[in-house]
């Protein structure tokens, strides 16, 4: 079994000091961590390696600092990692990102399964995984909450849907995105951490991957961030007045009108 896990680094939500306003896609200040949803993807990748053998590789597109996140993945038990890092990739939108990740995956040993987190907590689009499947020409399963079985080149999985669960089968290779219900991510081990400290993460640039530069970066991105703003909170509180008895009557009337009682 050959597994590739896609991951990215995001600002830790509890440490973000404020959302930058304006049009530029400035990264908010804060401690950078592995996208929480990608932790489930990494865990599932490691579990597949433990269950079926083979190899699991983590890939990320990002700035040089993203190497820290890949090292953390190695500390968890991911065997290998690759960082796609090139200044011309900056400001890539989801389509451009999925194009880059697809070319990166094509350079690796052909994977049986590509695993992504359901979405990243910074952009929150959830688009990269399906776009990646499209770019690779592979089938896609979103919101996977349990891998039931892998045999005869087919993957049977449970998907989380609004009404409950769906059990689906897909032929491999395939791309899947996972939800937090799928597992409980492990903590790193001491030997993993020591190995990660020594690990050298290969860095691939746009020329290394033979990327078409018109498809990456700001110019290669069909979507634009027009504005970034904090939504206004609307409060529709109402003060009731009068004697306590009349306030109770008013309240009951309003609750009846709202059909809650």
């Amino acid at each position: 079994m050959n597994v590739v896990v896609c991951m990215k680094q995001v600002p830790e939500s509890v440490t973000i000091s404020g959302v930058p306003q304006g049009t530029a896609s400035v990264r908010p200040q804060g401690k950078m961590v592995i996208n929480p949803f990608d932790m489930y993807a990494l865990e599932e990748g490691i579990r597949l390696k433990e269950r079926y053998g083979g190899r699991v590789t983590a890939i990320s597109m990002g700035p040089a600092e993203a190497e820290e996140a890949l090292k953390e993945a190695i500390a968890l038990g991911i065997g290998e990692a690759v960082l796609v890092c090139d200044p011309i990739l900056e400001h890539s939108d989801t389509l451009a990102t999925s194009y880059v990740l697809a070319r990166c995956i094509e350079r690796l040993e052909r994977p049986d399964i590509v695993i992504c987190g359901r979405q990243a907590t910074d952009g929150d689009t959830g688009q990269v995984a399906p776009q990646l499947a499209e770019q690779l020409g592979l089938p896609f399963l979103s919101y996977v909450s349990r891998i039931e079985d892998i045999s005869d080149g087919r993957l049977t999985a449970q998907r989380l849907v609004d009404e409950g669960h769906q059990v689906v089968q897909v032929s491999l290779p395939a791309v899947i995105s996972v939800v937090k219900e799928i597992n409980e991510p492990r903590l790193p081990s001491l030997r993993g951490l020591m190995q990660a400290k020594k690990a050298e993460i290969p860095r691939w640039t746009a020329p290394d991957l033979g990327l078409d530069v018109s498809k990456v970066g700001l110019d290669g991105s069909p979507t634009r961030v027009v504005n970034v703003f904090v939504p206004q909170r609307s409060q529709q509180g109402q003060m009731l007045e009068g004697s306590p008895e009349s306030q109770v009557d008013q309240l009951l009337e309003k609750l009846r009108d709202a059909k809650v009682i």
Partner: peptide, 11 residues
Amino acid sequence: KELADADMFRV
């Protein structure tokens, strides 16, 4: 089990 997985018994 967590401590074992984390290599704490190797310390």
